[in-house]
Amino acid sequence: MIEVAGAAHPVVGALVVVAVLALGAMAVAVTESVVTAHVAGSPLGSAWSRPWRRAALVLARPQPVTERPDTLLWVLAPAAYVGMAALGLTVLPLGTVWAVADVRTGIVVLGSAEVLAMVAVFLHGWAPNSPLPLVAGYRFVAAGLSFLLLSIFVLIAAALPAESMSFGRIVASQEDGAWNVLRQPLGLPLFLVVALAVSLHGPLDVADAGELAGGTTAEVSGPARLAWGFARRAMLTTYAVATAVVFLAGPAGPLLPGWAWLAVKSLAVVVVLVWIGQRTARVPVERFVRVAWTVLLPLSFLHLAIAGVVTLA
């Protein structure tokens, strides 16, 4: 019988995960609308309710059909993408001692959620049988295979002081020592790159690119498009919570209860990510692959070395 620190009843866990993803996706949508309105210089008043109205209209529009799609994969893609966002969220501590399933191999589960999310985005590009989404899906696989290593190195570096791969122990290791954002400085920027890239946001949104007429969503409309938008924002929520847990000691903090601290820190990370998204243009894929392998990967080696030395000191 292998003991697991925090774990909830499966049904309770599922409801909490779905609720957190829904709230998170709404928060991301509102943040995007407000930041876009601010950058555009228009009044912020109507920006708060604009996402709901837009979502209602998208829901009211008809579903996508192309000449000969692979409908099974086309429906499986958003479902798998949200499933992987949920998978990542289950292993993250959402309260001071409470987590849906704080298993001993937490960072490996988050890593495999990221990989299988890449498969979901490729399927979303492949399924419509249309040239522009196909090119967008293949572009994302090139980027996905390149930023994958960064996220693994950063998570392993966070596991060194915790002497365990469970996110609960990573938070515990930050409570007595300094937060990882301070003692492992290179980690946060690298992990923000991964968060932007895996959730198709901001400068690393190579899959739903505007220049390819919306990339993988070029043929998508109606509830299926709402499902894909929700999936992207749910994945951003999961990675914002993961950033807060790994670098800002997640639920740890004075006065406020654990989940409140986690909500505040995750919302801060969401605002930073969306702000970067509205100020930096999209990076061309060739350049991102070259930079990821020749600049960011050596940086993550250096980051790992720093984390190792700091852990031993």
Binding site: T36, A40, A209, G210, Q278
Partner: peptide, 16 residues
């Protein structure tokens, strides 16, 4: 060009 590279806010500002 701004709309193509994903800067929707700046595109609205320039259009205005």
């Amino acid at each position: 060009l701004l709309a193509l590279v994903g800067l929707a806010g700046m595109a609205v500002r320039v259009a205005r």
